[in-house]
C-alpha cells in the first residue's frame, strides 16, 4: 500500500523536480526564474497541439516516444520506493532496471536517426558514445552493491540498495564514494550540466535536445515527461542508497524519501549553477574519473573486508 502511494506520487510529482532544479539555477543567477510548475504547463500545452511528422520519417518515429515512456515507467515500477519492496521485484531486477533506461535511450536514438536529419544523427552519435562509457560505471556500481548486499551476492534491487539498514554501518566511506560515482552517472544519463546543457540550443553543444528537434505536440510532451520521470527515478535510487532505510512508520519514511529526492534536485541545481559544461573531449575523462572512484570503493571493500 505504502509502495503504491510512493509510485503514484512519483508519477504525479516527477516534473516538479525539474522545476526545483530550474528554480535553484535561477536563484543562483539572481533571476526570478520559471514557476515551479512550469513543466506541467508546458506538457499540457503540448498535449493540446497537433502531432506533426516529418515526411521522411516512418512508423519508428511514431512508436519511439511511447516505447521510451513505457520503459521508464516500468523501471520506476521496479524501484523499491522508500524501502518498500516493489510488487514487480525479482532477483536480478537491478540489471533490468538499468537496461530499461537503456531501452528508452535506444528508442530515442532510433527516432532521431529516423528523421533523416544530419543534425539529429550527430546528437544520436554523442548520446550513444557517452552511454557506452556510462555502462561500465553502472556495472561497477552494481558489482559493489552486490558485494555489500544484505543476502550475500545478490542482484535484487531491494536487497542491494537497502544496505545501510543492515548493520553494514562501517562501510560508510565506500558507500559515499559509490554515491558520488552514481551522482555523476545520474548527471550524464539525464543530460545535466557537466555533460549536456538542457537549456542550450546551440547546435554544437547539445545532445539530448538535438535528438528531439523534430518531435512536436504530444510526442514532445511524452518525451519531456519521460525525461522528468527518469530523473525522479534515478534520484530516488540515490536517496535509498544513501539514506538508512529504517522503516519507522509509513508516513515519516515516505516524507524522508520525498525530502531526499528534492535535496538531490537542489544538489543538481547547485552543480549546474557553479559548473560550466565540459568540452566533449573532456567528457570521457570525467566519466573515467567516476569509474576510478567506483573502483576505489570496491577496492576498499575487498581489501578491508567491512
Amino acid at each position: 500500500m505504502n509502495w503504491f502511494i510512493c509510485f503514484l506520487i512519483s508519477l504525479i510529482a516527477a516534473p516538479l523536480l525539474v522545476g526545483v532544479i530550474n528554480k535553484i539555477k535561477a536563484l543562483f543567477a539572481g533571476r526570478h526564474g520559471p514557476r515551479l510548475l512550469q513543466l506541467y504547463y508546458d506538457i499540457f500545452k503540448l498535449l493540446k497541439k497537433d502531432r506533426i511528422l516529418s515526411s521522411t520519417s516512418t512508423c519508428i518515429m511514431e512508436l519511439c516516444p511511447i516505447i521510451n515512456l513505457g520503459a521508464v515507467i516500468v523501471a520506476t515500477a521496479l524501484m523499491p520506493m522508500a524501502g518498500y519492496e516493489s510488487p514487480l521485484g525479482f532477483n536480478g531486477d537491478i540489471i533490468l532496471f538499468f537496461y530499461l533506461f537503456a531501452l528508452g535511450r535506444i528508442a530515442t536514438i532510433f527516432a532521431a536517426l529516423d528523421t533523416g536529419s544530419a543534425f539529429e544523427g550527430m546528437g544520436a552519435s554523442r548520446e550513444a558514445q557517452f552511454s557506452a562509457i556510462v555502462e561500465i560505471i553502472v556495472f561497477t556500481i552494481i558489482t559493489f552493491l552486490a558485494l555489500i548486499s544484505a543476502g550475500g551476492f545478490s542482484l535484487d534491487l531491494l536487497q542491494q540498495i537497502s544496505i545501510s539498514s543492515t548493520g553494514v554501518g562501517l562501510a560508510i566511506t565506500p558507500l559515499l564514494l559509490i554515491a558520488l560515482a552514481f551522482l555523476i552517472v545520474l548527471l550524464c544519463e539525464n543530460c545535466r550540466v557537466p555533460f549536456d546543457d538542457p537549456e542550450t540550443h546551440l547546435e554544437l553543444t547539445m545532445i539530448h535536445e538535438a535528438m528531439i528537434l523534430d518531435n512536436a505536440g504530444p510526442d514532445l510532451a511524452i518525451i519531456h515527461y519521460a525525461a522528468a520521470l527518469k530523473l525522479w527515478a534515478m534520484s530516488g535510487f540515490l536517496v535509498v542508497l544513501v539514506l538508512p532505510s529504517v522503516i519507522v512508520n509509513g508516513f515519516v519514511t515516505i516524507c524522508c524519501y520525498l525530502v531526499g529526492i528534492i535535496l538531490v534536485g537542489i544538489i543538481v541545481g547547485v552543480i549546474e549553477s557553479i559548473l560550466a559544461r565540459a568540452r566533449f573531449l573532456k567528457v570521457p575523462q570525467l566519466l573515467l574519473s567516476a569509474f576510478t572512484i567506483a573502483l576505489i570503493a570496491i577496492l576498499l571493500l575487498s581489501i578491508f573486508k567491512y
Binding site: L288, S289, L295, L299
Partner: peptide, 12 residues
C-alpha cells in the same frame, strides 16, 4: 586520461 589510469594503478 592516461594520468587517471596511472593514478588508479598507484592507488591500487
Amino acid at each position: 586520461s592516461a594520468s587517471v589510469f596511472i593514478i588508479l594503478i598507484i592507488i591500487t
